[in-house]
Write a protein that binds this DNA or RNA. Structure first.
Lengths: 240, 240
DNA sequence: CGCTATGTTGATCCATATCAATAAGTGTGG
DNA sequence: CCACACTTATTGATATGGATCAACATAGCG
């Protein structure tokens, strides 16, 4: 595995990393301290970057590509989330110096920045703006998972899919058509259903103005879809 | 409602609040600043303390009694968690100055300390140890919700109940018998099932050495129950 | 006590999973 | 550029976990 990866100095990505909310407020000095210990690696698709249960040695930042967070129990596996650039993942494990709760694998060729968890913990003790950013980020992460729990417990799989499509559409500036960012198989798992059930769910949403051609989704009747999906800011608003 | 409540100075509870992880490391000065704006109130059972969607004006700390966090969507309701003393709740909303994602109601007569969210946000900017404690607490909260998501997505309701019972037993120092801390109706909702289904689930667990008399649970064959439940630290360990 | 909420049990229904077969992409090497 | 292999998606048939509806039992509680 290792020989297929490329290691490079993180210099070339300073800009994009620094621009992240998490790092934008800290002092130059603190930022350089973090970057000194960091390195960038490029991974091929389908590489397991992280295995749940292992100690969290690095904070990960996805610079390019895409990464899937998933979990396993008793021979079953479920997709917890999909990470798109540019964002960090497994911050909480890094902070608590606790084992990863989720595994991570690349979905496509991906570039990842690795910052030693030790450095993250050391630096936030010294840099109040950074500590503040971590607080805000963790609170955000927490709220995202709570929303996801509400989605899972309060909605049927058909309702979850309908609301997912509305969220995706919003992410695409409200375009009537857009491509699903991940395989249907993985989407099914993310939404807590089987691929077969997802396939049928798409069929059922035709009645509410959803057309599907491969990965391409057309929402022909937003109003009707919303009437069915009943989106709610306390579940579906990605910010706040 | 209001006239049934008692407002009292928080002085008498300084000790227990200060002993919480969240407040134990901060300076005396910061702590007093928080307490100056805080007040303690006693509520009767079944009072809605918080309604989801409302602005998060106060950080809540439960001193005595018990509080249920729940959420609603489209005429459906689900129990998200039960809070027992002494602990804080809705920290994330306070931090982000965002609307509550969950509602809260007292289950029994409860004493709650209310700290203005503004004060919390102001103080952590000034007090690094407090900021540090908030970070650790939020990371913990996040990991708890992630574990709960894994429980929901990877297990059947029978498996969730079995593991819940094992966790409760552990919480009771491994006693063979213990009382459920909440109504079965609410437990069912917490575990993502109906009361009828829970009732049958208890029946089904008889085969694995679980005896039920009202709220009292007897675990007569821990080994057998564990063989069925397959508890996993990355889902069931409350700490870490 | 009797009232009301909670819990249990039974019968049935429905959403979703599972199993199986086919179809449609997708990538690879000749 | 096509043929093959392999993965992913769809469709159908069936099984099952869990929900719903209804009746009854039980237990708190005023």
């Amino acid at each position: 595995m290792r020989n297929t990866n490329r290691t490079e100095p993180p210099d070339s990505h300073f800009g994009e990393i620094r621009a992240l909310h998490l790092f934008s407020d800290m002092s130059d000095e603190s930022f350089m301290t973090l970057m000194r210990g960091a390195y960038v690696q490029t991974f091929p698709p389908q590489i397991e970057l992280i295995t749940e249960g292992e100690p969290s040695d690095f904070l990960h930042i996805l610079i390019a590509g895409s990464v899937e967070l998933f979990s396993t129990w008793n021979r079953r596996e479920t997709v917890m989330d999909t990470v798109l650039p540019v964002s960090t993942f497994i911050l909480a494990a890094t902070i608590r110096d606790a084992p990863y709760l989720m595994s991570a694998r690349t979905l496509e060729k991906s570039r990842v920045v690795l910052i030693p968890s030790l450095d993250v913990r050391a630096v936030f003790e010294q840099d109040m703006p950074f500590a503040r950013s971590i607080i805000v980020e963790l609170a955000q992460c927490y709220r995202t998972v709570v929303k996801n729990t509400k989605d899972l417990k309060l909605r049927t799989s058909l309702e979850r899919l309908a609301n997912y499509l509305l969220r995706e559409r919003a992410r695409h500036a409200g375009d009537q058509s857009f491509d699903l960012p991940i395989d249907k198989r993985r989407l099914a798992s993310r939404l807590g259903m089987t691929p077969e059930n997802l396939s049928r769910a798409f069929k059922n949403l035709q009645a509410y103005g959803v057309r599907v051609q491969g990965a391409r989704i057309h929402i022909t009747d937003q109003i009707e879809l919303e009437r069915f999906a009943k989106p709610n800011p306390l579940i579906d608003d990605l910010s706040a």
